[in-house]
Amino acid sequence: MTEPRPLLEVSRVTRVIDGKKILDDVSLSLNKGDLKVVIGPSGGGKSTLLQCVNFLQVPNQGDVFLDGVSAREMSRHNINLFRQKIGMIFQDFNLFDHLSARDNVAIALRKVKGQKKAKAYQRAMEELDRVGLADKADLYPSQLSGGQKQRVSLARALAMDPMVMLLDEPTSALDPELIGEVLNVIAQLSYSGMTMLMVTHQIGFARHLTKEIIFMEAGRVVETGPPELLEGGPGGGRAAEFCAKLAEVTGR
């Protein structure tokens, strides 16, 4: 039996900034429907990795394949087409400040996909409804809570019908009582078969939903394995050690 071709494959990516190796020969792959979680200490290169996946940062070496299509090849023609198929969620939301929630979701449909206003708005409302914010469509980012902002940004990404979602600490900027509403949407997405690569320190959440944890430190993938990797006990590796520290800090 042949393995199915991975939907997303990151192949030997190295990223150097100012002579410093921020990412050092990182490889990973996701099959359709996978949710994989990246954890690791601050400055380890997690955000850089995610930005290399959609070539917001161009790796110095290595390549990324989405459904077999090479990003490096695409970047010679039109990398924007490649990026359209990858949704990205940022720690600090990065909603467009001058646009209402509805327009935040609709603008890429209109400008990038060239849809008519009415069609884009209809889709925007569907996506806002999916994240439970249909009644907030006319509000501007400054009028939304952090959790609501992040849900709008999820709607914005989903409206583009991405094949893969990249999530960079989607809940770290949120007050504890707002984390749940965002994780709920992400869990729903995962159940519905969305392929996702997510950086998070929500260990409990990760344990429940992921089959694989990727532990990164100093630009390298140090450990990869099932969520049990994070359990302490004898022989626990760096990932377990990190989690224990995290638990100490968060008191969980």
């Binding site: 959609n54 917001l56 924007n80 087409l81 990026r83 359209q84 990858i86 949704g87 990205m88 940022f90 990065n94 909603l95 467009f96 890429a108 400008k111 990038v112 940004s153 914005r156 990404a157 583009m160």
Partner: peptide
Amino acid sequence: LAARALGFS
């Protein structure tokens, strides 16, 4: 960055 990630030129 958010705009570029959505596929804007």
